[in-house]
Design a protein around this nucleic acid. Sequence first.
DNA 1: TCAAAAATGTTCAATGATGAACAATAAAGT
DNA 2: ACTTTATTGTTCATCATTGAACATTTTTGA
Lengths: 159, 159
Amino acid sequence: MNKNQAFPWDHPRFRSWIGVARACQLMQQAVTRAIADLGIKPPHLDILVNLYRFQGISQQELARKLLVGRSNMSMLLPQLEKRGLIERNPDAKDKRVLRLSLTAEGRALTEQAMTIQTGLIERIMSQTPEDRCLQVAEAMEDIIRILQTLETADDEEEG
Amino acid sequence: MNKNQAFPWDHPRFRSWIGVARACQLMQQAVTRAIADLGIKPPHLDILVNLYRFQGISQQELARKLLVGRSNMSMLLPQLEKRGLIERNPDAKDKRVLRLSLTAEGRALTEQAMTIQTGLIERIMSQTPEDRCLQVAEAMEDIIRILQTLETADDEEEG
DNA sequence: TCAAAAATGTTCAATGATGAACAATAAAGT
DNA sequence: ACTTTATTGTTCATCATTGAACATTTTTGA
């Protein structure tokens, strides 16, 4: 009678996913504590790292990379600008867009933060051999692909 | 000269973890959309599922399972109580604690929501063979263990 | 050329999450 | 017994995030 695995938490896939979610939640909290001394939180870190990597990106593009709404960027970026960590310059061709870049100070802070973050990631994955990490990465890519098709499927339903 | 893998995003472990984080974020959004019709959001779902599984749990215990603060429960639980989904009854022995339980309505709603959630999880992991899921689960357990020791290490530093 | 549609960034109200401070109760130490 | 310490839940101010409505600008297409 228990063949149907009546409860979700008896499903192996369910338990796997719960593990992923818990790990993420704990990691988020650990990162929050680890970078608190720098005066930033995970959302700021995500922004800074992306600006470090993709200089001159627009707010829209940044929001897409971070999987958040444009309005979120409109709230956070002015804070970082006032702190002198980033700059927002109007695009030459398109008067709607603002091009984002790190200041020297912002770049220095970002490098410190990335060092901390990378150290933390290496630490939590130190028990996981490299090939296992690759397998996890592949599994996540599959999941991400499916979730993205789900997303666009929802969009089409509306239209 | 590139032997040191100067940038975080060149580290395989870093990329693996970014994948995990992205998958979680997308899944969170997908679940939000999927259960919106039921009038609840992921935080409520997490509460309801835990009450479904652990009847008579206290607010403190629930907060610990969800990895959130007590104050968060103090904000959310009264909402669910007013909607008639849960009950909060004083403990007989300890006048401080409130014992939580689902109402019949809450139980019915939770079952609907769990069906949706389980379906979504099965869907996103459908491309991942079961043994691969197990490997992911093991990797996450290792990570969770390390993060929890980190947590307690922080506590001890304070004391 | 000109009107309609789309894209970009902003504002605003609502909501979830947090940590600190607090009151009530229980447990421990003396 | 009694003082101190810990635990449980609440309140409050703060902040990140969201989605809708909006103004400006660009692109489409008739």
